[in-house]
Simulated assay, not measured.
Amino acid sequence: MGKISDDWLHAPRIYVENTRGHDPSYEVTAEHVLRNLPVCRPAELTCRYSDERNIESLRRADILIAGKLDTSLISREAKSLKIIQCTSAGVEKYAPLEWLDPSVALTNASGVHAEKVGEFALMATLMLHAHVPAIATKQRHHRWSRTLRGTSAGCRVLIYGVGALGGAVAKRLHSAGFHITGIRRSGEPVESVNLMTTPDHFHECLPFTDVLILACPLTSATSGLVGASELAALPEGASVLNIARGGVVDHSALRDALESGHLSGAILDVFEKEPLPPNSELWDIPNLMIFPHVSADAPEGYVDRCLEILADNLARAKAGRPLRNVVDRQFGY
């Protein structure tokens, strides 16, 4: 995206769309916008729920702030937009981005979850290292069975997807003594990652991995990334943590690997269908712990952190600098 014309930057028309009934911690109010966008004075500020839209205001809007995007409506009606600030980090549901005018920048909330997800991943990885999922399974069956484990120092972790979240995970785990190998598309080094490589070397890394952590976006390249062959390539007794998206892992293959004892445990925080249905077989798989998609959500100050991204981008646009958190049309994140 080229330099944005600055005639609207000082007084943009802003349209905010919330979802009725959603957690109020994630509702964007006019107060939030005015407090967090000191770089401009909105000429128009409209805050509505998706079931009571003001279409005329949407048509005039330069900026759209929303957690859920009605892509057909935006494509059809919102012809004046310059920036869409999505308050969600994951935007795979909107791909491909053919609905988005090339002149409009779609930015996401990548990075706002980093501190919380790093903390969660440290907890979950320590649990996997200590075989806590297996201990929890034994508890359900009233079985006392002691298995001693050493410290985490030197335990080999492979993080697939070292972006904002994966980088935060690496930082936390490195400080606890884990040895970190990272995989990212660019292959560029990241602090706290001992060895960085690219996706084409994923399978080569698996035999040397004690804990596999998935922190990547869901794209055509990562859908079904971890299946039976990948799990079989892990050493016996290895474990898996998924904080990416449910579609990254073949759950049938994961079940087989856990039931056979090849994997010592797994922790899942994301699922293809959420809430996870009560009749899902995942609930009863041995040595599997289920978290209800809570790894990245820290509601206090969430909206403020999202709007800080927008404020920074408005300042960048005024200075003719590239925007950050822009969703890549080719890769979908």
Results as ranks from 00 to 15, higher is better:
28 V>E: 03
174 H>T: 14
52 E>D: 15
27 E>C: 05
76 R>H: 12
86 C>Y: 04
267 I>P: 00
165 L>F: 06
85 Q>T: 10
222 T>P: 03
157 V>Q: 02
45 L>S: 07
27 E>S: 07
207 P>T: 14
293 H>G: 09
111 G>R: 02
90 G>I: 07
307 L>S: 03
115 E>H: 09
181 T>F: 01
298 A>E: 15
100 L>S: 08
133 P>K: 05
312 D>M: 06
165 L>E: 11
284 D>H: 10
12 P>T: 00
86 C>A: 15
99 W>I: 13
71 T>C: 14
162 V>L: 04
82 K>F: 00
132 V>A: 02
191 E>D: 14
307 L>E: 06
147 T>F: 08
87 T>Q: 07
148 L>P: 01
79 K>V: 14
208 F>S: 13
146 R>V: 15
68 K>Y: 13
199 P>Q: 12
332 G>R: 06
225 L>P: 02
10 H>P: 10
286 P>M: 05
13 R>L: 12
174 H>C: 07
78 A>Q: 03
136 A>W: 04
92 E>P: 05
158 L>G: 04
139 Q>A: 14
57 S>W: 07
115 E>D: 13
150 G>S: 13
123 M>P: 00
66 A>N: 07
273 K>A: 12
278 P>R: 15
59 R>M: 11
275 P>M: 11
41 R>L: 04
126 L>W: 05
236 E>H: 03
272 E>F: 06
29 T>M: 06
200 D>K: 08
302 Y>W: 13
316 R>M: 10
87 T>P: 05
141 H>E: 10
257 A>I: 02
215 A>C: 12
58 L>C: 03
241 L>I: 09
316 R>S: 06
180 I>M: 03
148 L>D: 11
41 R>F: 00
106 L>C: 09
324 R>N: 11
314 L>C: 03
78 A>I: 03
279 N>K: 09
26 Y>C: 11
248 V>Y: 01
99 W>F: 12
37 L>I: 11
228 A>C: 12
196 M>Q: 09
74 I>L: 15
114 A>D: 13
237 G>H: 08
78 A>C: 12
128 L>W: 01
121 A>I: 06
238 A>L: 04
207 P>H: 02
104 V>H: 04
206 L>F: 09
77 E>P: 01
204 E>Y: 06
236 E>T: 01
33 V>T: 08
68 K>N: 13
247 G>L: 09
227 G>L: 07
285 I>Q: 02
108 N>H: 11
19 T>E: 13
34 L>C: 05
276 L>V: 15
316 R>I: 09
56 E>N: 08
205 C>R: 11
91 V>M: 08
280 S>L: 03
264 S>V: 02
76 R>Q: 13
14 I>S: 01
34 L>D: 07
263 L>F: 07
260 S>A: 13
320 G>P: 06
109 A>M: 10
144 W>L: 10
154 G>Y: 10
132 V>R: 01
85 Q>R: 08
189 P>V: 15
260 S>K: 05
88 S>Q: 11
252 S>V: 15
309 I>L: 04
130 A>Y: 04
220 S>T: 15
184 R>T: 11
137 T>K: 05
261 G>T: 00
101 D>A: 13
155 C>P: 00
202 F>R: 04
146 R>D: 14
48 R>D: 13
261 G>W: 06
103 S>H: 15
13 R>S: 09
104 V>L: 05
268 L>C: 08
